[in-house]
């Protein structure tokens, strides 16, 4: 009797333990298939000299593409600087505008809130090309066409909703009472915002900021049209080399293009996981 009672939970625990990794491993495999595999040909192409069908691997190798990418005399450096500058500016502006907006959407009840929430989704629904064509005319009048500011503003449109939505989600949970508590303890409204609201909103800011950066980083059409070729970014270069048929350089550039995104995502997911476990520990 006593032994059976001891054995039964043991078996069920073992069953549970064996079942648990099943789902994650399937997800990991799928993720590998979808994300890692498409990168493999890029890696090979970037180091290939000639790679023709039906060869499984290139017949000749070359470091030409990577030498080009890292050469200081090519356009790559300009593209890298351009992409980084535009993406960072877009991220900062999106955070500066999107944080208060997200707090308002997340917390306040005001007339037309539903409409604003729907409008926030508009950039996901309306094709970017159409929007870009429209704003190009306005930007020409405002003398923003062919400038980096113009490109940043154009990127802001698809980037902003990510910040607003992710901040709104966190702001709803943070609540107003914790701010009232800070005020009551002697913090001014500004001190409350800096010492209480912002730190508590951090997960939302991290996710929103990351997405704003990545959205801007991967813009092609709007950079091309609003920047008018005056603003050089990596996607424009990748596209140019793809069109010209220089696969090794296009592949190397594509890898360079993907790298920051992967690094940023890995960093973000790590900080978010730490945060989550802290939150989980509290419950």
């Amino acid at each position: 009797m006593a032994t059976r009672a001891r054995v039964t939970p043991d078996i069920s625990r073992r069953l549970r333990r064996s079942r648990r990794p099943m789902l994650p491993s399937a997800v990991v495999s799928l993720w590998v298939a979808l994300v890692i595999l498409p990168v493999v040909p890029l890696v090979i192409w970037s180091a290939a000299f000639s790679w023709r069908w039906p060869d499984l691997l290139p017949t000749a190798w070359s470091g030409r593409a990577w030498r080009y990418v890292f050469s200081p005399t090519t356009q790559v450096r300009a593209g890298l600087i351009g992409s980084s500058t535009v993406a960072l500016l877009t991220m900062m502006l999106a955070l500066a505008i999107g944080t208060p907006a997200g707090i308002a959407v997340g917390r306040m009840a005001f007339r037309g809130k539903r409409a604003i929430e729907l409008l926030l989704l508009a950039p996901f629904i309306v094709p970017g090309l159409i929007v870009t064509m429209g704003i190009q005319i306005v930007f020409i009048h405002l003398r923003l066409a062919d400038t980096m500011q113009g490109v940043v503003f154009a990127h802001l449109m698809p980037a902003l909703p990510y910040v607003i939505i992710s901040v709104a989600g966190v702001a709803t949970n943070v609540g107003v009472q914790v701010e009232e508590q800070a005020r009551s303890l002697g913090a001014t409204s500004w001190q409350t915002f800096i010492h209480i609201t912002l730190p508590l909103l951090r997960p939302g800011l991290a996710v929103g900021g990351l997405f704003a950066f990545l959205v801007s980083w991967s813009q092609y059409t709007s950079t091309l049209i609003i920047g008018g070729g005056k603003v050089q970014t990596l996607p424009l270069l990748v596209y140019a080399f793809t069109r010209s048929g220089d696969n090794p350089i296009a592949a190397a550039l594509a890898l360079l293009f993907v790298a920051p995104a992967v690094v940023a995502l890995a960093l973000a997911s790590r900080t978010l996981r730490v945060r989550q476990s802290v939150v989980g520990g509290r419950l």
């Binding site: 009472q177 914790v178 009232e180 508590q181 800070a182 009551s184 303890l185 002697g186 209480i196 730190p199 508590l200 951090r202 802290v278 939150v279 509290r282």
Partner: peptide, 12 residues
């Protein structure tokens, strides 16, 4: 100074 029904501590 207010002490609320929920402790309302600053979790960060």
């Amino acid at each position: 100074v207010m002490v609320f029904q929920q402790p309302t501590l600053f979790s960060h």
